[in-house]
């Protein structure tokens, strides 16, 4: 793996540990020193590809591959316009096609394939769907709504828990204080020996503590922090989308017979054909073989083609 470095001043991360690479829309990186140097005026051409770029568009490079940065840039821009949500489509398939289209556009732009055509396509899409885009921008998608709800709920529960902890702490403090006061009172006024009083107080305080401990256990969480419910609750398992497309219907295959109608498997069993063929042994049945199979095949062979008759002009059809 090559050392990461600035393509202009050839500094590398090794030589300058504080090197920070920056990247612009064209996907070529520069170190921050070079950016400062080259773009004093605020705008200029990329030293690699000559694209006119602005200084304000420089970002710190997060990924090692500048190409990835470029793609992320393009993706952000494209997704701003192509912001339809799953709910906007009738079928899952259409939605997937739409996603596929977006990916194609991004890929094309990022890799310089048919850039002009793709740009034009994006522009025309923007024009055609102006209203829809604006509407979708303000609308939160179902996922986002769900996430927001989760966050809200989590906040609620955490504040509740805090409150509970606080309450119990206060309660405990009060109790301790009261206990202490009672002990001192007793020590002052009781006739019993001091040692007896102390042991008696210890034994009464212990169980109370123990009880406190059990009651203090936090309410069992039914969700993970990510919001997925614990245990086997079918409510949140994502159900496969049922498509509105016409569903495939199996139609029984019409066999060419050229003969009388074949008996079906049910017929074979009902009429009693099976008593006249060798029964399948246990090991054969384990392998999927049934006596009906060979019986059916023999009968089909016997019946199929019985009506075969060559069709030839000039052939006499009279019975001999």
């Amino acid at each position: 793996m090559d050392e990461q470095g600035c393509p202009r001043c050839k500094t590398t991360k090794y030589r300058n540990p504080s090197l920070k690479l920056m990247v612009n829309v064209c996907g070529h990186s520069l170190c921050d020193n070079c950016v400062d140097l080259l773009f004093i005026k605020g705008s200029g051409a990329c030293p690699e590809c000559g694209t006119a770029i602005r200084r304000s568009n420089f970002r710190y490079q997060i990924f090692e591959d500048a190409q990835v940065e470029k793609e992320i840039d393009i993706r952000k821009k494209i997704l701003k316009d192509y912001n339809k949500k799953e709910e906007d489509f009738d079928t899952l398939r259409e939605y997937n096609d739409y996603l596929e289209m977006i990916e194609t556009i991004i890929y094309n732009l990022a890799n310089g394939i048919d850039v002009e055509d793709t740009r034009r396509q994006v522009d025309s899409y923007k024009k055609e769907n102006k209203d829809a885009i604006r509407k979708n921008q303000s609308k939160l998608s179902r996922d986002e709504e769900y996430l927001e709800m989760l966050i809200e709920e989590e906040e609620k529960t955490s504040s509740l828990r805090k409150q509970m902890i606080h309450d119990t702490e206060v309660l405990e403090k009060n109790k301790k204080r009261r206990d202490k006061e009672a002990l001192i009172d007793e020590l002052m006024f009781s006739d019993m020996s001091a040692a007896d009083i102390l042991t008696m107080h210890k034994t009464t305080a212990r169980p109370a503590e123990a009880v406190d401990n059990t009651s203090f256990q936090p309410a069992q969480t039914t969700r993970y922090s990510t919001g997925i419910q614990r245990g086997q609750q079918s409510g949140l398992i994502p159900m496969p989308m049922t498509e509105a497309n016409p569903v495939y219907h199996y139609e029984e295959l019409e066999l060419e017979r050229c003969g009388p109608i074949y008996p079906t498997v049910d017929d074979i069993i009902e009429v009693g054909y099976l008593s006249n063929v060798r029964a399948a042994s246990e090991s054969e049945r384990a392998g999927g073989f049934e006596a009906t199979l060979c019986c059916q095949r023999a009968l089909q062979d016997a019946l199929g083609g019985l009506f075969y008759y060559p069709e030839l002009p000039g052939q006499s059809t009279s019975v001999m």
Binding site: V271, C295, R297, A298
Partner: peptide
């Protein structure tokens, strides 16, 4: 096999 089928049919 066709003959076999016919015999099975006859028997049945």
């Amino acid at each position: 096999r066709a003959l076999e089928g016919l015999l099975i049919d006859l028997k049945t």
